[in-house]
Simulated assay, not measured.
Amino acid sequence: MIIQCTKKLADEMKLKVSKPDLLNVNQIYCWHAHLFKIGRKKCVLVMNNVTRYHFVLYGLVKKDFVMFEEIVKMNIVSNFLADGINPDHVDWYINQLGDIQFYATSDRSIISQMNDSILSLEYIIYYEAERGNTIDIFEINRDLNCTPMMKIPKYPNKMMIDALNEQYSKN
């Protein structure tokens, strides 16, 4: 698995990242990640390079960045299952990931779409907070993946389901 970190996230995790060479890598296993804050809470948005499927890790603390690999994999599983992806496909995908390698970002269009998702996320969270509602980040992740994006022909959750079905059927 490859996670391409923005400079903010790499600095937070104290990583030295270099530009990736992704020519011989299946992009379905590549993700971008960006650190940002909502209020005083540290958050990370993680987005798949191919499908633009994404999720937010909300309210991270220093120790979470030490266990970042486990947290990302755990959230991939929980978000995939919540979006109705076949559990066999989820297990197969997680087994294919291998160790996480960190690199610098390489695609400005993904960064742009991540920034759009962050704006939507901030709006939703502040809207819910104004109304006194509890913030369910799990449900917000569902909503964000049902939002159209310009570079892909379908919603991100549908794109991920199709990509996993295709990869699973090849094996």
Rank of each mutant, 00 (worst) to 15 (best):
H54C: 11
E166S: 13
R131V: 02
N141L: 01
I137D: 01
Q96C: 15
M150C: 12
I110L: 10
A104N: 15
W92C: 14
L60W: 11
L81K: 13
G98N: 12
E139F: 09
G98L: 15
V72E: 00
K73E: 15
G84F: 05
F138K: 15
I140E: 00
N133V: 06
Y93W: 10
Y127K: 03
V66F: 13
I71K: 14
I100H: 08
H89N: 06
N75E: 14
R52T: 12
A163M: 07
G59F: 05
D116C: 03
P148F: 02
P156R: 04
T105V: 15
N165Y: 03
D88Y: 02
K62E: 14
Y126C: 05
F80V: 04
S112D: 14
Y103R: 07
G59V: 01
V77N: 11
I161G: 12
E166C: 12
I140T: 03
K73N: 13
N75V: 09
L97M: 15
D136P: 00
P87W: 03
I161N: 11
C146P: 04
N165F: 06
D99G: 13
F138N: 09
K62L: 12
M159V: 02
D88F: 14
K63T: 00
N115P: 01
M160A: 05
M67E: 11
Q101M: 14
I140G: 08
D99A: 15
V44A: 10
A82Q: 10
Y93T: 00
F65D: 09
I100F: 07
M74A: 10
Y53L: 15
E166P: 00
D143W: 11
R131F: 03
K151S: 12
I135S: 11
E166L: 12
M159S: 12
V66A: 10
V77D: 12
Y126V: 03
I125R: 07
Y127T: 04
N165C: 01
K151C: 09
L57N: 02
I137R: 00
I110S: 07
V50T: 15
W92L: 08
G132R: 02
S117R: 05
A163N: 09
I71H: 15
K151E: 09
Q167V: 15
I135F: 03
V72N: 08
R108H: 09
T51R: 05
D88I: 09
I124L: 10
I118G: 08
P153G: 11
E70R: 13
D162Q: 05
V56I: 14
A129R: 09
I137V: 04
Q96Y: 03
V72H: 06
A104W: 13
G84Q: 07
E139T: 10
D143Y: 13
S117Y: 06
I85W: 01
D107W: 06
L144H: 06
N48E: 09
L81H: 09
I135R: 03
M150F: 08
K62C: 11
Q113K: 09
K154H: 13
A163S: 06
M149K: 04
V72M: 13
I137S: 01
D136A: 01
F102K: 02
H54A: 08
Q113Y: 11
R108A: 14
